[in-house]
Every structure is written in structure tokens, then in C-alpha cells.
Design a protein around this nucleic acid. Structure first.
Lengths: 244, 244
DNA sequence: AGAGTTTTAATTGTCTTACAATTAAAAAGG
DNA sequence: CCTTTTTAATTGTAAGACAATTAAAACTCT
């Protein structure tokens, strides 16, 4: 592993890339200890602060973890699904908030992916995920529920639907799509009437999963998508009218 | 924005989190300039190297960019779809390589998502994406094509299929699933026979998109999924026999 | 006065040195 | 042999210095 001291790129960025490549290619297996910061600074012929900046870049991506003390150091970190979820959610959230993505586009993506999961969920029909869906539907019917709590329950319901596919890779991919929509969903103030409609559709979805009728789940999800978009457009139009 | 000097967490991690939260919440809009490193070190009451470590953490996630010179500094970066693609791909790749995910599970996730896109692609039927798909199919028929080039063309074909849905959010979500599979796909050495089958299925998919018959695209993708899994299992079994 | 050139100041990038905090192993002592 | 203390290795943090870069300000010449 060598770096170019005459390059216009930061040395710390080059070092981080070199180590990252070594991890991705498998040269550095999980839990392997990297050389100490002092050794790395010798190997790359840079100062220790520069090495540290490189290591912090890798730590920010959960690629390494560090430990102090005599037997401490930087270790190649096993990237867990939990870590990946978190990164995926923040990245997706920022992507939506920074790029003027229309509500409809985000919604289309979300429900397209979710319907794919629903088909698998209907086939697997896991008892615990189904129980979670029913429990969340029940929570959503509580009259005193705040809008925030309703939205949180909504997310939990859809998470259970997705997790019901029992495919961690799929759950990971969907985490961003479902969770990143929450800020957008929160801007929609749910009336009692719209909650009723949503709960009815949720019930249809849960029924479809239970009865292993994926086509019914598909239809209900499409209706939910359309209804959500209609609600959002109404809110957006109202706001435009108020400000204009 | 304040940090806790008595916490067991790294100061640089705390500072990075504080700034990241400010960006996500919108307090720091895109292209806003952060205070200089000297000012930040005063504000947080830490040394400049510590501030720099925090900034490198943010830079690693494409949340900020830095510029040298008189009017330089750290600026809130607009997270582009391109940046997000790259992160998504490396994260997905590491997730698969570090977590003993079965080929079938990864394949199931990938094709479930891809079929969702295909349905939309068939509805939109974009000329340029269709042209790319045809061009890649043609490339795949060239007899002298190396296995690596065939795999790359395969990825390009599927990317075009996904991009044909004309939904950047969807393309972003899929980027990881499609590209992260490539290392797994590369381990399958394609014989002339399997190339023929794959090209035939690709052609059926392209035809289905062109004719706006999503059910045909769906069927072909399912066949492709099954065929890919069969090939992979055969390779895995052969390797086990050789080593055992 | 205007255009081109030089200087200057601000900022990040890097290096050096030093010390604090933590931790496990080694040494010491009972 | 067990407990306690010391020690050494390692990361975390600090302070100060200089290099590199860049845009604006000052200057010079026509």
C-alpha cells in the first residue's frame, strides 16, 4: 500500500482509500488489527495526525473500530445490518431533503419496493410479523394518539410488512425508502377521516398477508399510495394558497 | 451546539454528530460555510486537530466539502445521487462479503426489486434506455468477449432496465443491489451455453419493455433469477467437491 | 484612470512534540 | 498462589509551527 505525496488529493483521503480497498478486497479480514498509528505513519511516511484523520474517515463509515490501551488499536469492523440500516436511513433522508425530489417520485419508489416485499411476505406469512402488524393497526385506532405517534406506528407497520419477507438484504434496502419518507409524511396532518381510511387499508394488507393473497396486498398498497399522494398534494396546495 | 468533555465518547465523534444533526435538521443549508477550523476549535473548546478529525468524518460521508485558500473553508455539500450511489454500493458490497449472506437471499432481494422496476419501465418505455439494453445484448453476443466484460455488460443491461423506470430514488435504491452482486456473479464462470440462455432471457425482457407487457418481463426475470441461482449452486457444489 | 502585477491575509493541509487516559500484561509483594 | 502495583503500549487530545493555496487588496506602470 503506497500513496502519492505529490497528488493534489489529501493524504488522509488517499490513506483511507488504500485501507478501505484492502478491506473490501479481503486483504484485511474482519477483526484484523491494523498497525498502530505510529507504525502506519512510518509506513505511509506521514505524520500521526494525518493517519488519524484517515482512520476517522474509515470509522465514520463503520469500517473500523478503535480501542484504547495496551492491546488496543484499530480493528476491521464487521459491518452489521444495523450499522448499514442507519447509514442507509441518513443517506436517504439527506438525498430527499437536498434534491427537491417530488413527493410522488419518493412515494412511487417506496411503494414499488414495498409491494415487492409484500408479495414475498404473503408467501412466508410469519406469525410474529403479522402480530406486529395487527398490534400497530390496533394502536392506530386509539383515539388519543398524537400525529407523531400515528406516523411512528405507521412506520412500524410498514417495517413489519417488509421484515415479513424474511430477507435481511431486502429489509436493508427498504429501510431507507420507508424511514426516509417519515419527515415528508409528518408534514401531512392526519384528520380523523384520513386515519380511518389508512387503517382500513392497513387491515386489508394484513388480511392479505394472512390469507396469502398477494394480489390483494398489492391492490391495497396501490390504493394506499394513491391516497397518500392525494393527501400530500392537498396539503401542498393549501400551503401554496396560504402563502400566495 | 455544545459537547460533553466528560463523556466517554470521542470529542471528534461528538462534534461530527452535532454538525451532522444541524445539517440534517436544515439549520445548516446546502452550500453554507461552516466556521473556520480555528473558530470551531474555540466554539467547542477543543484543539484544531480534534476539529479536523470531526470534519474528516463528515467529509467521508460526503456531508461537507473543503476548500483551501482565502475564501476557503468547509461547506455543507449537496449530497448528489452519484455520491449516494457510490456509498450505497460499497456498503452493500461489504454487507454481503462480511455477513455470510447466501447467494439465494441476495439474489431474491435483487430480483424482487428489479421486477418492481421492470413493471414501471414497461409503462414508461423510454427510448434511450431501451436502446442501451439492446446495445448491451448485442455486445453480449460477441464471441471474443471476456467473462469480465460479459459481467460488466450484464450490469449495464440491468442498470438500464432499472433506470428505465425514470425514478432516481428507485435507481439509487437498486444501485446497491445490482452492483454489489457483481463480485458474486463474477465467481460464476460463464460457459458459452449459459451465455446463450442469459442473452435469450435478456432479449425477452427487452421485448417485454418495448411491447409494454410487464407480465412477460416479470416472468423472464423470475426465470433469470432461478437460472442464476442454479448456476451459482453448481459452481459452489463443484468447488466443495474439489476442496473436499 | 485602467490594466496588469505583486503583496497580503485567510484558510486548510501537514508536521512535530508533548502529555493525558486507558488498558492489559508484567512485576512485585504478601 | 493470589492480590496489588507497576509498566509499557496505544489511542485521545493539545499546542505551535510552517507549507500550500487562494482570493482580495495594494501597488505599479502605461
Amino acid at each position: 500500500m503506497k500513496i502519492d505525496h505529490t497528488s493534489d488529493k489529501d493524504l488522509s483521503a488517499q490513506i483511507a482509500t488504500a485501507i478501505r480497498d484492502a478491506i473490501i478486497s479481503g486483504q484485511l479480514p474482519v477483526d484484523e488489527r491494523l498497525p498502530s498509528e505510529a507504525e502506519l505513519s512510518e509506513q505511509f511516511d506521514v505524520s500521526r495526525p494525518t493517519v488519524r484523520e484517515a482512520l476517522k474517515r474509515l470509522a465514520a463509515q463503520s469500517l473500523i473500530r478503535t480501542q484504547r490501551g495496551a492491546t488496543g488499536g484499530a480493528f476491521v469492523n464487521r459491518l452489521t445490518f444495523e450499522d448499514a440500516y442507519r447509514q442507509q436511513i441518513t443517506t436517504s433522508t439527506l438525498l430527499l431533503s437536498m434534491n427537491a425530489v417530488s413527493f410522488e417520485t419518493a412515494c412511487e419508489a417506496r411503494y414499488a419496493l414495498e409491494r415487492a416485499c409484500a408479495a414475498l411476505s404473503a408467501g412466508r406469512r410469519e406469525a410474529d410479523h403479522l402480530a406486529t402488524m395487527r398490534a400497530e393497526i390496533h394502536r392506530q385506532t386509539q383515539p388519543g394518539l398524537s400525529d407523531e405517534a400515528f406516523c411512528a406506528s405507521d412506520v412500524a407497520f410498514h417495517r413489519a410488512l417488509v421484515d415479513g419477507a424474511v430477507n435481511p438484504v431486502l429489509s436493508y434496502q427498504l429501510a431507507g425508502a420507508v424511514e426516509a419518507m417519515q419527515p415528508l409524511m409528518n408534514m401531512i396532518t392526519f384528520s380523523a377521516r384520513s386515519r380511518e381510511e389508512i387503517i382500513a387499508l392497513h387491515t386489508r394488507i394484513a388480511d392479505a398477508i394472512e390469507n396469502q393473497t398477494p394480489e390483494n396486498a398489492d391492490a391495497a398498497l396501490i390504493e394506499l399510495q394513491n391516497y397518500t399522494v392525494r393527501l400530500a398534494n392537498a396539503v401542498i396546495a393549501e400551503r401554496a394558497a396560504q402563502s400566495g
